[in-house]
């Protein structure tokens, strides 16, 4: 039943509600969001709970095909790899390495990026010019190449990869946040606030930062898909996660030897990377569209 309204009253929805209303009708984006939620749950749960032990080698069940093939086993839905380890458990634990750690890396890069980006955006003159040129340099070096160099200095390993990805992601966050702040500073409401006597710090804290979440969340989705692909690529090259760790990229590299006998050991981790990145991109595109519509409405 509709609420009875006696008096005319202007009713504005909150910005988040508006965004959600524009986001919800986009089925593909919703689909991506649901997949991401499922993946996130798996990434959180899998270190504690698994169908089988992901590291347990079972010499009697080598290269069991997935259960949809005739000679597969129901208790091993995705089959086993060349050491008899359950692929499903490994893929689930891989979600927390490939997806969970990527989120952590990007979150870290985002926080530091907002801090330094605020510095870059609020300063002017020679200081900001030098800063921006250094950033331009860092942006031109490809992120994967930068990560490879950092790994070469620190030595291979999953943790070093995360540091490398974080550092490699940093310039684009600083650049993006800096540009967004510069754009905000041109807005009329910022000028009005300044005329009220607010200083730089007050403007940044109470006017600019609340308006920043929109570009930052877009940057976040873009950086997240790059981070997942980079972590997987480094793992595939053997520079990231090392052998027994079930990170998706290194799982593909491990399974290359048995690609003739067991194509699913290569196909499934790759498919999972693809689905993850695709859903992130779908959500990112959906957010972008929803924000555009909200601004127009």
């Amino acid at each position: 039943m509709k609420k009875l309204r006696l008096y005319y009253e202007e009713y504005n929805k909150k910005p988040y509600q508006l965004l959600w209303r524009h986001f919800m009708p986009q089925h593909f984006a919703m689909f991506g969001l649901i997949i991401l939620c499922v993946l996130l749950t798996i990434a959180l749960v899998s270190p504690f709970m698994n169908p089988h032990d992901p590291y347990l080698q079972n010499s009697e069940l080598l290269l069991v095909p997935p259960s949809w093939q005739g000679n597969g086993l129901v208790s091993y839905p995705f089959g086993t790899d060349d050491l008899g380890r359950d692929l499903m458990s490994r893929l689930m634990l891989g979600a927390s390495y490939s997806f969970g750690l990527a989120i952590l890396a990007v979150l870290g890069a985002m926080l530091v990026g907002i801090l330094l980006g605020a510095l870059a955006g609020m300063t002017r003159g020679v200081q900001s010019s030098i800063f921006n040129h250094l950033l331009d340099l860092a942006l031109t070096i490809p992120s994967l190449l930068l990560a490879i160099v950092i790994v070469a200095v620190l030595g291979p390993g999953l943790l070093n990869t995360i540091w490398a990805i974080m550092l490699a992601m940093l310039p684009q966050f600083i650049h993006g946040v800096g540009n967004a702040i510069q754009q905000q500073l041109k807005q009329d409401y910022v000028v009005a606030y300044r005329l009220d006597g607010a200083n730089n710090w007050q403007i940044l804290w109470s006017v600019v930062l609340p308006n920043l979440w929109e570009p930052v969340s877009l940057l976040f989705t873009m950086a997240l898909s790059t981070a997942i692909l980079d972590i997987a690529a480094l793992g595939f090259l053997g520079l990231g996660a090392q052998a027994p760790t079930p990170e998706w990229g290194s799982m593909i590299a491990d399974a290359l030897d048995s690609i003739y006998l067991a194509p699913w050991t290569v196909a499934l981790p790759g498919l999972l990377i693809f689905i993850t990145v695709l859903s992130i991109n779908l959500v990112g595109d959906g957010l972008h569209k929803a924000m555009k519509k909200r601004r127009e409405s």
Binding site: G249, I252, I259, F274, L278, I280
Partner: peptide, 18 residues
């Protein structure tokens, strides 16, 4: 384009080689 944009290039290469 969105699908191609999300494909990990090393995996695509392996599938194509196969």
């Amino acid at each position: 384009a969105l699908v191609g944009y999300s494909l990990p290039v090393f995996w695509l290469a392996l599938i194509c080689i196969m």
